[in-house]
Amino acid sequence: MTDSLQNGKKDNILLEVNGLKKYFPIQKGLLRKVVGYVKAVDDVSLYVREGETLGLVGESGCGKTTASRSIIRLYEPTAGQVLFKSRVLSPDGRPRMVNLLELNREQMTKVREEIAMIFQDPINSLNPRMTVADIIAEPMVIHGKYQKGRSEEIIISLLERVGLRADHLRRYPHEFSGGQRQRIGIARALALNPRLVLCDEPVSALDVSIQAQTLNLLQDLQKDFNLSYLFVAHDLSVVQHISDRIAVMYVGKVVEMASSEELYANPLHPYTEALLSAVPKPDPLYKSERIIMQGDVADPSNPPSGCYFHPRCRYVIDRCKTEAPAFREVKPDHWVACHRAEELQLKGI
């Protein structure tokens, strides 16, 4: 089991996830008998402080999307705890920690005001039959906050804030480029003045130059609106650029979490080390010393015993094959799940 994150030094926590699990049943046959589970998220623990960005990286299929969607219960988590410091749910207006997984429907709807989401796919995340104005207004309409005139002004100012123009209001999503669409998605996420934004690969589908614009925009908005981000991505350079702290996922588990400088300079988990070594650098004279990982990413419906990374780890010892390592705080604010974290000397960049 995971150490409770409670014992570390943590102040100003906005979101704290403990032991989150999401298993998808695998059904077979006519009667849809459950023959197994895809352990898409299998023990994720992390926390996000107010005003900071936590990056969440990992290979494709490791459960990043599932984790972020489980946090706001787009998927109903199998187990775990999601603590969020909510304002709207506290009677005296002072922020109070609530466990999202224990809220009823009505309370959950209210909390959604404070947690917004930005999606990866700029084409699929906007309804093609709605105008830009309707798309951005939708969160307000849902929460009964839409007032003619006033809200339109807010929408226009949001649109301008993300770099679009008021005369785009009556257009439809297909008339915009990928980058512009992602800006519409960002404007929509900000419509209710959230405090936490879950960004699921917001720049992965964008071009290099548009990606830079969007990253800058997200950073500017964070300052202006005092936002906190959970920033999911698979591109380590992007994550490092935008994040204060980074959590690395491998097959449904967070295996390491630290501030981004610390993580890149002194990784403590062998998987992080291998991942960092494989990142291609935009420098033709750089000679990479890539660490070759054996084999394939583990199958989340049939994960290996012990440490999930052991079949590919070059520091594996016998203990790793039987005993799953705990996620523990090895240095202040540096968490890792590896038996040999203290003894190994791993190479960062």
Binding site: S209, A212, L236, S237, Q240, H241, E261
Partner: peptide, 10 residues
């Protein structure tokens, strides 16, 4: 070339 984020000291 300048618009790609680079790994390294932040």
């Amino acid at each position: 070339l300048q618009s790609v984020p680079k790994l390294g000291p932040k």
